[in-house]
Design a protein around this nucleic acid. Sequence first.
DNA 1: GAGGCAGTGGGGAATAGTGGGGATCCAGGC
DNA 2: GCCTGGATCCCCACTATTCCCCACTGCCTC
Lengths: 146, 146
Amino acid sequence: MGRMPTFLGQYTYTLDEKGRVSLPAPFRREAEEQRFVLLQVHPPALALYPESAWREVEDRLRGVLRNDPDARYWVLRVMSSAVEVVPDSQGRILIPSRLQDCAHLSGQVLMVGVIDKVELWNPSEFEGAVEGKEGDFARYAPQIFR
Amino acid sequence: MGRMPTFLGQYTYTLDEKGRVSLPAPFRREAEEQRFVLLQVHPPALALYPESAWREVEDRLRGVLRNDPDARYWVLRVMSSAVEVVPDSQGRILIPSRLQDCAHLSGQVLMVGVIDKVELWNPSEFEGAVEGKEGDFARYAPQIFR
DNA sequence: GAGGCAGTGGGGAATAGTGGGGATCCAGGC
DNA sequence: GCCTGGATCCCCACTATTCCCCACTGCCTC
């Protein structure tokens, strides 16, 4: 098996009237495979997993179900929000309107590469979520960028 | 895999109208690999990691995400500032305008080799950041240059 | 003095993002 | 049963950006 695709960077693209967004070319190149899974993991963001990374998530879900019966409904909820998406010949993916609503997407979509997945955000909500996190640099940077 | 590249010294080069800077030839020779990751670690400086060093950072980021859910937004912030950059055939890298703004870069860029990465500074801000730190010599030098 | 390397500048071609047309399929209504 | 409206999918087309390459200059070496 090849190296797992990894993602980084941010791109803001338009969500057209048909509910499509272009997947940034670097992301497309990274995941030369075709299929992705799109779902809501950390609301309000959507998460887009390339197939290979999704399989690992699936394994972990199986594990949780085995060890913790209370997780059943949570797993149901997560899985029911998921869709398999395949880029069209122009490299765009279709975001079902149900998921657009969950993530408050319209007009512009911010796509952020976060290691093994891509997160889709309403641009201003993302701004609000990460602003004021400069203080955390002192907390985390020494152990990460040592 | 070969030895990790290490960098030292400072070079001031021009940022041209297309947003490109030449990577100093010694740095290029050191990292004969092609790809780098450019991001904002300690504002206002930018950090340029050769691919091999970046992979280690990425592993540590994965770890922090797993162990400390509070780190999520900080990781998002860091990853969203990142870009993969590849020197062109003249050995220049392109600095996206978003990052130029973050680091207040224009005209001249100061590139400092700091062990496993290269930092990019606005020359006068660098001046301000390190000035008045002479006293620290007495504090650190004995244990380092013993 | 000639050759090579390094930094800088710029132009042309391939690519990426975006919009939209048209065919196919399904559901509902007449 | 047939027609109609809507949704989905697939492909074509336009344009601005990006990137790739060629070219110039100064310096250092041989």
